[in-house]
Amino acid sequence: MSMWKEFTKGFIKENPVFVLLLGMCPTLGVTGSAINGLGMGLASTAVLLCSNTVIAVIKNLIPDKVRIPAFIVVIASFVTIVDLSLEAFLPDLYEQLGLFIPLIVVNCLILGRAEAFASRKGVGVSIIDGAGMGLGFTFALTALGGLREILGSGAIFDFKFIPESADGMLLFIMPPGAFIVLGFLIAFVNALMKKKAA
């Protein structure tokens, strides 16, 4: 039961984007479409899952004083692996996400989980935490990307549902749209939680 709770907490209650406000740069930067959000979310999840596992395994070997640099090296190695694999196998997505792939290294969500969770808890529960938090992040990015795509280009996952000749509200796939849609999404989640609490 508690394992299940560790897994599901990332979706709404402790959602890294909507509630904890972590990892905002990729959240805003790559969510011009649902598929980009999904890709970025899964890439970050892969890194988070691997880094959480490794850090939970080696946590007793790392002297306390240099733990942050050590965590960063672990994370950076996995980011390099993801970076090279995406370039090799999914060049289109790699092109779209661009700069934000190497920047997974400085995603505060990943270092945050390493510091707050994986360095204190066992291996099994850290893997569950990594998977839950990563999928929560993916869920948030896909939702934001999907909403922006629907509003901005009248499509979802590249499937256009408005007439071919019509345009969406371009504003929403441009930078300002990212801020505005995310603002309303967080307000919506706040309202949802308040209702649940009451």
Partner: peptide, 8 residues
């Protein structure tokens, strides 16, 4: 939320 919309 309001900060993000302002940033937008």
């Amino acid at each position: 939320p309001i900060a993000l919309i302002t940033a937008g």
